[in-house]
């Protein structure tokens, strides 16, 4: 390394700097519209999906076990809880993202 001419060594330092820079998160590149649209679409689905998944699994289990509609109702309630939890976690992450910017 010491035998290298100084301009090549400088170039090596500059390349390393650029590499570190490109690996670091670049939040400033995201436009605000993009971020808000992403969050808006995300929140709705985060809540709805577990409820639907709970209902579907419950429906299938009820059909198999002949317990209509007990499991479906129980899993729907768990689905609402999971949806709320997912939304809370998403909101926490959004908060963290906002702080980073």
């Amino acid at each position: 390394m010491n035998k290298l001419p100084s301009d090549i060594r400088n170039m090596d330092i500059r390349i390393r700097k650029m590499q570190n820079k490109s690996a670091a998160p670049r939040h400033h590149n995201r436009s605000r519209l993009r971020i808000f649209m992403e969050y808006a679409f995300r929140m709705a689905a985060e809540f709805a999906a577990p409820v639907v998944v709970g209902l579907c699994i419950g429906y299938v289990l009820d059909k198999l076990l002949g317990t209509k509609p007990m499991i479906m109702l129980i899993l729907a309630i768990f689905g609402v809880a999971a949806g709320t939890l997912n939304m809370y976690r998403a909101a926490q992450q959004i908060d963290k993202d906002m702080d980073k910017e």
């Binding site: 679409f41 689905a45 999906a49 577990p50 998944v53 689905g79 809880a81 939890l85 997912n86």
Partner: peptide, 22 residues
């Protein structure tokens, strides 16, 4: 456990639902 399981299973479903419905 059921809440966390549903929350994990919902991830691919929420991805699917959002795109397909839109």
């Amino acid at each position: 456990i059921p809440v966390e399981t549903l929350s994990l299973l919902a991830k691919p479903f929420s991805l699917t639902l959002r795109l397909a419905i839109n």
